[in-house]
């Protein structure tokens, strides 16, 4: 299940006891039960839906419990272009999510504005909220989103703080 044991079972207990650290166990639980908050505003959201549906099946990685309430989720997937009118909404939803929380910026528009270099579009959501993993593509394939979720899982397993927490301590 991806849990790295720090200690092996001693010979006299015949492998029935393992030793580990609280952090590792907690992170192991977090990483295998990410609850995404979908923030789908454009065509990337269609790919996100495909990722969640049976063909690509994100539930294989423990992330199928899509929460439409930010208060019950710990992974924000920003998929689509964010206009200047939508940015306060996104910021508020990010603020409402309980810590620890991770953010995936999915696709060219969310990451850098994409082809929409205009007055109304945010040129990258990372100007306003901390982003952990960026996905290139217009739109990215579902495999790319799965890869991003796995990267978030790796980050959690490694014990690294989410980007948002780093920002607070900077």
């Amino acid at each position: 299940m991806g849990l790295d044991f720090v200690g092996q079972g001693a010979a006299e207990t015949d492998g029935n006891i393992i030793t580990t650290t609280i952090d590792k166990v907690v992170n192991w639980g977090r990483k295998n039960s990410l609850w995404p908050m979908p923030f789908g505003t454009a065509c990337c959201a269609i790919e996100m839906m495909a990722t969640l549906a049976s063909k690509f099946d994100l539930s294989r990685f423990g992330s199928e419990a899509i929460r439409f309430s930010p208060r019950q989720s710990d992974l924000l997937i920003v998929s689509g272009r964010i206009s200047i009118k939508m940015m306060p909404v996104l910021k508020r939803i990010y603020d409402q999510m309980p810590d620890p929380k991770w953010v995936i910026s999915m696709g060219a528009c969310a990451s850098c504005g994409g082809v929409f270099d205009t007055y109304t579009l945010i040129q990258g959501v990372d100007q306003f909220i901390p982003v952990d993993v960026y996905i290139p593509g217009c739109p990215p394939r579902p495999e790319d989103l799965i890869d991003a979720v796995l990267q978030v899982q790796q980050k959690i397993a490694s014990g690294a703080a989410p980007k948002g927490v780093e920002a607070v301590y900077e």
């Binding site: 940015m87 205009t118 007055y119 109304t120 579009l121 306003f128």
Partner: peptide
């Protein structure tokens, strides 16, 4: 201006 007058970078939440 096509790229706006800075409203996409300047935000007071």
């Amino acid at each position: 201006p096509l790229r706006g007058r800075g409203e996409r970078e300047r935000f007071n939440f």
